[in-house]
Simulated assay, not measured.
Amino acid sequence: MAKGLNHRQFCSLLQEAESEYSDLLLHNKVRWLSRGEVLKRFAACLDHIKTFLESKNLVYPEMAHPEWLGKLHFMVDMTSHLNTLNKKLQGKGNTALQLLEDVLAFERKMTLFAGDVQKETFSHFPSLKAMQEANNVDCDYFHRAIVVMQSAFGDRFSEFRKEKSTLSFPLAPLSVDVSLLNMDPFTDVSRPDLELELADIVDKEMWTSKFVTLTAELENVARQKARLAQLHKWSDIENLPKPDKMVFETWNELPSTYENMKKYAFGVLSIFGSTYICEQLFSNVNYIKSKYRSRQTDESLQSCVKIKVTSYSPNITELSNELQGQKSH
């Protein structure tokens, strides 16, 4: 891939062999690019890669070794599952609770993956299953690998699991046990006053109905997102209402009587559950600071970044009508 001639020759080989793919994928460290797709493409083109390397008098014995091949195909399937999780964690507008629930769900799925490998059914490992039919694989090794991964997930997200009640507060304040809420990060919120406000709002149908409506609206958005994801309409998903904004607007409608509740909810909503937005911002900055824009000032760069990342859409027609055109003399 690093040499243009070799790359062109390999692409020609894939074309002559009528391969499903026309090229390999390069690995990229950007989080939202799919590492699993790189492995999947490599495994699918493995026979052609061997043929090409042999034509260049390059020999890699491990490519014919059953143990190495088994690990490769296991990684193809496992990274595919991780990519599915990764895509759920990316994007704007997800609350920290949604991200935590996705992680906990994946941790539970790994129990199924471990049992699937241990029983050698490979229902969730299609690439490994196809390879296993031709070669015997060490299922104990893969089972141990999944158990270790599951344990690592449990350790990494143990603190978040303890805070699930806190993260649930903005969505379902009336069903959360106040004693389980973590008040330490929110020093301007009084727990006694918060308890009184929660007791006061329970029987106020005018305000409690807003959270019922919010739940229904969030469910509707989740259904639309799932349907569009199945159809791979990612740009349409971006146009859906953002859950965090919907929750924020609901809380903003509550009167100042429930000041402590609102402060606590807004504080929890301000928690960044993912570094996606930060990484996207850095990517945008790198795009803006190209060789054609090498003399930008900090002020102009800041303005360009704001335009790039904002969701605000100006009404050009209305703004144009407010300007007085210069009349010819």
Rank of each mutant, 00 (worst) to 15 (best):
279 E>M: 02
61 P>C: 04
156 R>E: 01
231 L>F: 09
140 D>C: 03
115 G>A: 04
183 M>L: 12
30 V>H: 00
20 E>C: 14
75 M>E: 08
259 E>Q: 12
309 V>N: 05
80 S>Y: 10
227 R>A: 09
293 R>T: 01
191 R>V: 12
170 P>T: 01
313 S>E: 07
249 E>M: 13
224 Q>V: 02
90 Q>L: 03
208 T>I: 08
286 N>S: 15
264 Y>T: 01
312 Y>I: 06
285 V>Q: 05
256 S>C: 14
239 N>Y: 10
227 R>P: 00
207 W>T: 08
300 S>N: 12
249 E>I: 10
20 E>M: 07
15 Q>I: 11
238 E>Y: 01
276 Y>W: 03
103 V>Y: 08
294 S>W: 08
59 V>D: 09
121 T>D: 15
265 A>M: 01
161 R>C: 12
231 L>W: 08
128 L>F: 00
57 N>H: 12
172 A>M: 09
215 T>R: 13
292 Y>D: 11
58 L>V: 15
140 D>G: 12
140 D>T: 10
154 G>N: 09
45 C>E: 01
171 L>W: 05
89 L>I: 06
105 A>W: 03
186 F>D: 01
34 S>C: 08
208 T>Q: 04
154 G>C: 04
9 Q>K: 09
308 K>V: 03
28 N>V: 14
228 L>T: 07
20 E>V: 11
280 Q>P: 02
326 Q>R: 15
115 G>C: 06
124 H>R: 08
